[in-house]
């Protein structure tokens, strides 16, 4: 018999418009922020270059890690809630408990949900990364501080991975207790 594809099942049943809306808002905000910052940095660089002839102000273009992480947490928490919880009679119930009587391997179902959460996190992170690097590359050109930006995204990545692990552990713990 064909094995049941939990990932496809979950993907087909995932209804999370708020995640997509928040993702779009976050990425648009990053785009605006990156474009404004890069333009300001370029103008400052030009001004300083004229005034001092050697200074390169483009190095001032940075990622606001706190804001990036805040947007990440809000967006990913929404996706996490849609994947692992269901609101019933005003209460958040772990959705895995709803499959207790069905012929379902709860570990595989959890894994499928975790993969979808990771996928959502990757979309957010890579989206942000692409936007920042594109803005820096297009507006600042070769003067863009790519290495510094990459380092900042590295710190943000560590935070994002930790946040996703904490969320998944909390989900597993709550689901286990409800089953």
């Amino acid at each position: 018999m064909k094995t049941f594809n939990y990932y496809r099942y979950e993907k087909n049943h995932l209804r999370c418009t708020s995640y997509y809306v928040l993702l779009a808002i976050s990425l648009f905000f990053f785009f605006l922020e990156a474009a404004v910052n890069a333009s300001a940095a370029a103008r400052a660089s030009d001004a300083l270059r004229i005034a001092l002839e050697t200074e390169n102000a483009a190095k001032e273009f940075t990622l606001n890690i706190f804001r990036f992480e805040l947007f990440f947490m809000i967006t990913i928490s929404t996706l996490n809630s849609a994947l692992f919880y269901i609101r019933e009679q005003g209460q958040a119930v772990p959705v895995l408990s709803k499959y207790l009587f069905a012929p379902v391997d709860s570990k595989k179902l959890y894994r499928a949900k975790a993969l979808l959460l990771l996928r959502g996190s990757c979309i957010f992170f890579l989206g942000g990364l692409i936007i920042y690097f594109s803005a820096a590359g297009i507006i600042l050109g070769t003067e863009a501080p790519f290495q510094h930006l990459l380092q900042q995204f590295g710190y943000a990545l560590i935070f994002c991975i930790t946040a996703v692990i904490v969320l998944l552990l909390a989900d597993w713990h709550r689901s286990r207790h409800s089953i």
Partner: peptide, 11 residues
């Protein structure tokens, strides 16, 4: 399996 405790999606 038919049981009073069977969880369904209530909403």
């Amino acid at each position: 399996y038919i049981s009073e405790n069977r969880p369904f999606f209530m909403e």
